[in-house]
């Protein structure tokens, strides 16, 4: 009898503490969500606001205090702004440079990463450390001699300086990323295929390449973003307007015509859109979290 009351007492006590703990957990979840929502607003509001500026008319822009939305909305600003300068021409220049650069960078980084991952050559570790060390060298250190080299080759005012160096796996980070990927592919797969008489090329094309697709996609996305937004390269090498890429074209638009903010916002958003699309398509390769893990040790 006595024992059973004691038991019920302890049961009720644990029930109370469980309820308290549950309430604590609910409170914590609420705080987490509130923080997340607040932070998201901080990220989204500036974007929405600039987008809203893009669809204002001249009169709506001058209204003070500014309002988030004015009616009617002027979606045609996107078209008139784009046509106010040869942006279509700049766009195709940007596409050409980015396409060649992404292709060259991805293919060459894969080839070099495969060499580092699969073959034990003399000095492999030393060479790999040198490759990683190049990531620390500021591009400004090589900028001037590279410019002189390009001038010697008569490559000024061409697209070559913007994509040819990338074809030699000059980005240590890409090689590093792909090598991590390739060392993760079990060797037994290759050995089994060799036993069955597959040629090395066959193994590469049918086993290694399909398995490294996520890594290749990540490298392609990173190099696309880098080349699409590359500013210093075109600034140094492209001096005639017919060769300009979008960043240079936009800067010139701003400086020469001092357009109204709505036009400026409209073009700025349009030239950023390709990167946003590429990121949304490729986000599953980033969102799981990048495991630097053991490689840092």
């Amino acid at each position: 009898m006595i024992q059973s009351t004691r038991q019920t007492k302890s049961v009720s006590r644990t029930a109370a503490s469980r309820a308290r703990r549950r309430r604590g957990r609910h409170l914590r979840t609420a705080v987490i969500y509130a923080t997340l929502v607040l932070g998201s607003l901080g990220i989204i509001v500036p974007v929405l606001w600039t987008a809203s500026v893009a669809i204002k008319s001249r009169a709506q822009l001058a209204q003070y205090p500014p309002r988030l939305l004015n009616f009617p909305m002027h979606w045609e600003n996107f078209i008139t702004a784009w046509k106010a300068a040869p942006f279509t021409h700049y766009f195709f220049n940007s596409v050409e440079v980015a396409f060649l650069a992404v292709l060259g960078t991805t293919v060459s980084s894969f080839i070099v990463a495969y060499g580092f991952a699969r073959f034990r050559g003399y000095g492999r570790n030393v060479l790999f450390i040198m490759l990683l060390a190049t990531m620390m060298v500021p591009p400004q250190v090589t900028m001037i001699p590279t410019f002189m080299l390009m001038r010697f080759l008569h490559w000024i005012n061409t697209f070559y300086p913007l994509w040819v160096p990338g074809c030699f796996a000059t980005s240590g980070f890409n090689v590093f990323l792909l090598r991590q990927f390739l060392t993760g592919i079990p060797r037994e797969l290759e050995e089994a295929a060799t036993m069955e008489g597959a040629s090395p090329l066959h193994i590469l094309g049918r086993i290694i390449l399909p398995l490294s697709m996520p890594g290749l996609a990540a490298v392609a996305i990173l190099s696309f973003v880098w080349n699409w937004t590359n500013f210093m390269g075109p600034l140094i090498y492209l001096n005639s307007q017919s060769k300009w890429t979008l960043p240079l074209g936009l800067m010139n638009f701003q400086q020469q015509f001092t357009p109204l903010p709505n036009k400026m916002m409209a073009v700025s958003l349009l030239i950023t859109l390709p990167i946003v699309i590429v990121f949304f398509v490729g986000q599953r390769y980033f969102m799981k979290g990048i495991h630097l893990g053991r490689s840092l040790q």
Binding site: G39, S40, I43, I44, P46, V47, T50, V225, W228, T229, F231, L246, P247, L250, M251, Q254, M264, M265, V267, S268, L269, L270, I271, T272, I275, V276, V278, F279, F280, Q283, F286, M287
Partner: peptide
């Protein structure tokens, strides 16, 4: 959402 700003880079975003 938190990753979005990483896609919003370049001269266009600087002008925004």
């Amino acid at each position: 959402i938190y990753f979005l700003p990483r896609a919003l880079t370049g001269v266009g975003v600087a002008y925004l």
